Amino acid sequence: MFPLRSCRAVSLSLLLFLLATLPPVMAASLPPPEGDVLLRVTGNIEHPNVGDELHLDREMLMSLSPRVIETSTPWTEGVGRFEGPLLRAVLEAAGAQGEHVRVRALNEYEFEVPVVDFHDYDVILAMTRDGEPIAVRDLGPMFVLYPFDEHPELLNETIRHRSVWHVGALHVP
Rank of each mutant, 00 (worst) to 15 (best):
residue 169 A to W: 14
residue 73 T to R: 07
residue 118 F to C: 02
residue 13 S to F: 10
residue 127 M to S: 13
residue 145 L to R: 00
residue 162 R to V: 02
residue 150 E to I: 02
residue 10 V to A: 13
residue 48 P to Q: 12
residue 162 R to K: 15
residue 121 Y to D: 02
residue 111 F to T: 00
residue 123 V to I: 06
residue 67 R to A: 06
residue 39 L to I: 13
residue 109 Y to E: 09
residue 93 A to N: 06
residue 37 V to N: 03
residue 134 I to C: 00
residue 43 G to V: 12
residue 30 L to A: 02
residue 148 F to K: 00
residue 40 R to H: 07
residue 70 E to Y: 03
residue 22 L to K: 08
residue 102 R to M: 10
residue 60 M to H: 10
residue 94 A to I: 10
residue 18 L to G: 01
residue 145 L to A: 01
residue 14 L to V: 13
residue 114 P to Y: 10
residue 114 P to C: 07
residue 3 P to T: 07
residue 129 R to N: 08
residue 48 P to S: 11
residue 123 V to C: 08
residue 25 V to S: 09
residue 37 V to P: 05
residue 103 V to M: 12
residue 121 Y to N: 03
residue 61 L to E: 05
residue 8 R to P: 01
residue 49 N to D: 07
residue 60 M to V: 03
residue 31 P to C: 03
residue 127 M to R: 11
residue 1 M to Y: 12
residue 23 P to L: 05
residue 117 D to F: 13
residue 43 G to C: 11
residue 62 M to L: 14
residue 158 T to K: 08
residue 85 P to Q: 06
residue 94 A to L: 11
residue 38 L to G: 08
residue 90 V to C: 09
residue 173 P to Y: 08
residue 67 R to W: 00
residue 52 D to F: 02
residue 58 R to L: 14
residue 75 W to K: 07
residue 34 E to N: 07
residue 171 H to S: 15
residue 139 L to A: 13
residue 131 G to Y: 07
residue 77 E to N: 10
residue 45 I to F: 12
residue 68 V to D: 06
residue 79 V to W: 05
residue 168 G to L: 05
residue 24 P to A: 09
residue 67 R to M: 12
residue 136 V to E: 15
residue 75 W to G: 05
residue 160 R to K: 13
residue 32 P to Q: 10
residue 30 L to C: 02
residue 62 M to N: 11
residue 58 R to K: 12
residue 122 D to H: 10
residue 171 H to L: 14
residue 111 F to S: 03
residue 130 D to K: 01
residue 115 V to L: 09
residue 17 F to K: 00
